[in-house]
Each structure stands twice: as structure tokens, then as C-alpha cells.
């Protein structure tokens, strides 16, 4: 078995009295699409924030392809090739769609030229044109990103992740707020990306999760509740109880019993 793309050892993050991520040790194999699911407040986004450097852990370590990246700054982690999208869609609202992609591409370089006209960079421009085509945003290229529909912004976020050519992509609820048609387009795009990029996805839409993921980890209260293949997870009693909830009629029976 090859080296895991991402590994954490005893990762812990507390907010005051609340332990959001609790002694989490996880190992994600390379070349697999990995989904992280769990009820609200399970610590999924906090886990992503620890991986991408937005938060530093109170304990434990994070290894990316064997390299210890614990406590590094977000831009340093980004330059290693770990890119992420945010749960609340986050782009550069006053820049055009094309410029959003362009600066994301440019940010891979250490040096931003202070005097050369930005428009003269042909390599970046051809990448922008290709990504616009791939994400179906070509018709909106010159529109300020802040004026796009929510689904288009979500698509732009995926485009921004793609154009930076990541080696590991962390997607935080990428299809949240998308129409069914847009969700289909996004799922197809993510599947396409998964052939070359390692992907970890947080998602609430179970159709998306079971449509994309090869491995699933279920978090509850900051710890791993279960992990395994989609089939194993779907049949796991504990997962059903903690996450999917008991069937409503059982609740009803219980309520009736207590009445």
C-alpha cells in the first residue's frame, strides 16, 4: 500500500469547553475519493480548517504525503498543493469571473510581477479560458463574481480549485445551494477531477456522497464513529442511529410509550 496522502495523529481542537475535534487519527489513502459525513457540529469543517491552516490544533499533528504541516500558515499549505473550497461560498466579489480564476492561477507563483501588464500572461490566460469552458462559465467571464447566482458562484469555486492544479482538494459542501442540474454538473466535474487529484469532500447530500465517494468516514462529536466503504456505512447500525436518525415512527412509538 502506498503512502497515505493525508494522515493525522491525535488531532485535537477545543473552543472553550467544547472539544470540536477530539483526538482524531485518520489516514486517507491516495487515489481515492474520500467523503466525511456526520451530523451538524460533528467537527467536519473544523477538521478542514485544521488541515488548511485556518486554525492551529491544540494537540496532534497533520502529515501531508509524509511531510509534517502542523501549524503552517494557510498560504504555505496552499502552495504545497492543498486547495480547499469554503462552506459559505467565498470568491472575490468585485473581480470579474475571469480575474477570479486568473489571480488564483497566478497565486501559485511566489513572485507577482509589479509592473508587467497582467493581461500579457498568455499561459495563465489560456488556463483561464479552458477552465471557463470546463465549468460552463464562459458566458459570464466578464461579470463581477458578486453578481452571479449562488450555483454559479459554487461552480466558480470549483473552477478556482481546478485552475490551481492541486494535488489534494478539500471540498466543503460543494453542491450546497445548487439546483439539481447544477449538482449533476458539479458531480460530473468532481468525478472527472478525481482521476488525477486526491479529493476529500464534506457533503450533506447523501446522493452526492454515495455517488462520488469510495471511502466514507463518519464523524460525531469530533471523533470517528465509523469508516468504510459506502455499502458498509449504509448498513452500519450506529451510523443510522447517530446520523441518519431513527425512523420517525419509532420516535412516535417511544413518545407514545412515555405519554
Amino acid at each position: 500500500m502506498s503512502e497515505p496522502v493525508l494522515r493525522t495523529e491525535g488531532l485535537t481542537k477545543r473552543f472553550g469547553g467544547l472539544t470540536a475535534v477530539d483526538n482524531l487519527s485518520i489516514s486517507l489513502a491516495s487515489r481515492r475519493v474520500h467523503a466525511i459525513i456526520g451530523p451538524n457540529g460533528a467537527g467536519k469543517t473544523t477538521f478542514f480548517n485544521l488541515l488548511s491552516g485556518l486554525l492551529s490544533p491544540d494537540g496532534g499533528r497533520v502529515f501531508f504525503r509524509g511531510q509534517d504541516i502542523t501549524g503552517r500558515k494557510p498560504h504555505e499549505i496552499s502552495r504545497l498543493g492543498i486547495k480547499r473550497t469554503l462552506q459559505v461560498k467565498s470568491v472575490f466579489p468585485e473581480l470579474s469571473v475571469a480575474d477570479n480564476l486568473w489571480i488564483t492561477r497566478q497565486a501559485r507563483n511566489r513572485f507577482l510581477h509589479p509592473f508587467r501588464p497582467a493581461a500579457s500572461d498568455l499561459e495563465a490566460r489560456s488556463h483561464v479560458a479552458r477552465t471557463l469552458e470546463q465549468t460552463g462559465l464562459a458566458g459570464l467571464a466578464s461579470r463581477p463574481a458578486g453578481t452571479l447566482s449562488y450555483g454559479d458562484v459554487a461552480m466558480l469555486e470549483i473552477g478556482m480549485a481546478v485552475i490551481s492544479e492541486p494535488s489534494l482538494l478539500l471540498l466543503d459542501e460543494p453542491t450546497c445551494g445548487m439546483s439539481p442540474a447544477e449538482t449533476g454538473r458539479a458531480v460530473a466535474k468532481i468525478r472527472d477531477l478525481a482521476r488525477t487529484i486526491d479529493i476529500v469532500i464534506i457533503e450533506h447530500d447523501m446522493d452526492v456522497v454515495f455517488g462520488i465517494a469510495e471511502d466514507i468516514t463518519v464523524l460525531a462529536q469530533g471523533a470517528i464513529l465509523a469508516s468504510g466503504s459506502p455499502a458498509e456505512i449504509a448498513n452500519d447500525e450506529r451510523v443510522r442511529e447517530a446520523y441518519l436518525g431513527r425512523p420517525e415512527d419509532e420516535d412516535f412509538v417511544e413518545e407514545a410509550a412515555h405519554a
Binding site: 486568473w102 489571480i103 510581477h113 508587467r116 501588464p117 497582467a118
Partner: peptide, 10 residues
Amino acid sequence: NSPLGKGFLA
């Protein structure tokens, strides 16, 4: 209007 300037705007 340079790459640096676009970085500022971002």
C-alpha cells in the same frame, strides 16, 4: 494593472 495589483484587489 500588474499581477501584483490583481493580488492587491483579491
